[in-house]
């Protein structure tokens, strides 16, 4: 279990902001920090991993104190050994894929994990390539594999998939889930993509102006459990089109576009780009074997 109690005055472009957070994360959970940019999500991750020092507060991980301003405990990032996947991947340009992974090996650590990770991430063929020659999705896989080399208990993912196209994003979401389960990680994700959050996380914390304003399980959080409808998906509105006396709303769900009929009254509340829930009763869809 990770317990965070963090106080820090952050200065950003919009002036100063007081971060004042209380978070408890269960061991083995996949947790998402959700909120506007500048709300303090990345700062929270940096404080957990020891890259940023809180003004005051406490961080305990599985009973060990990592930071305590009152008793002057402040473990260095080197001692915390958190698997951190940065938004810009932070791959070492002077090393090839394999060397990037090998660099992360700990003293006397068996290097069989390198082969295991390369194989699992389907990177074997790319292992001698330099990072600059890789695509975004490949870089992301390298960054993730590299973060796992030292067998961390906590994996931090700072908007890991935001720069990727949809197809790659969906593939890597699957991969993240597998990794989370396979290595029994406690994973903390920063993401804006509601579909992604619902798909990946056990629980969600919404952070606004340095404070947790809402938390719950992912499905509860976005209201997905608020109806008895069982045939439900979340997606993004791509198109709103009037047809006769009704509207047809095109919604991107995963990599499929579906179309839903909507009354003008409801359509008036919707905008292109909105994240929406599409639901129907389990009794309605037909099902056919392909």
């Amino acid at each position: 279990m990770i317990q965070l109690n963090l106080h820090k005055t952050l200065s950003s472009t919009g002036g100063k902001m007081a971060l004042d957070l209380d978070l408890t994360i269960e061991k083995g959970h996949f947790v998402t920090l959700f909120g506007e940019s500048g709300a303090g999500k990345t700062s929270t991750l940096r404080m957990l991993s020891g890259l940023l020092k809180p003004d005051s507060g406490m961080i305990t991980v599985g009973g060990t104190t990592w930071f305590d301003s009152r008793s002057n405990i402040d473990l260095k990032p080197q001692q915390r050994k958190v698997g951190y996947v940065f938004q810009d991947y932070a791959l070492f340009p002077n090393m090839n894929v394999r060397q990037n992974l090998e660099y992360a090996l700990q003293k006397n650590q068996d290097n069989s994990i390198i082969r295991e990770l390369l194989e699992f991430a389907e990177l074997e063929e790319l292992q001698h390539r330099k990072p600059e020659t890789l695509s975004g999705g490949q870089k992301q896989r390298v960054a993730l594999s590299r973060a796992l080399v030292q067998r961390p208990e906590i994996l931090i993912l700072d908007e890991p998939l935001s720069a990727l196209d949809l197809k790659m994003r969906i593939k890597l979401q699957e991969y993240l889930l597998q990794v989370h389960k396979k290595y029994k990680l406690t994973t903390i994700l920063v993401s804006h993509d509601i579909g992604e959050i619902v798909k990946l996380s056990d629980s969600v914390f919404e952070i606004q102006n340095g404070r947790v304003i809402k938390n719950g399980t992912a499905a509860d959080f976005f209201g997905l459990n608020k109806t008895s409808a069982k045939f439900r998906f979340s997606g993004e509105i791509l198109k709103i089109q009037r047809e006769d006396v009704i509207y047809i709303i095109s919604v991107l769900i995963g990599n499929d576009i579906i179309r839903v009929v909507s009354d003008p009254k409801e359509a008036a509340l919707l905008r292109i780009g909105d994240q929406v829930l599409v639901a129907s009763k389990a009794f309605n869809p037909i099902i056919q074997k392909l």
Partner: peptide, 15 residues
């Protein structure tokens, strides 16, 4: 150099 390079190295336990 992006500061994440050295931060990444620190989180891997490197001095």
């Amino acid at each position: 150099l992006p500061s994440t390079l050295k931060e990444a190295s620190y989180t891997m336990g490197k001095s």
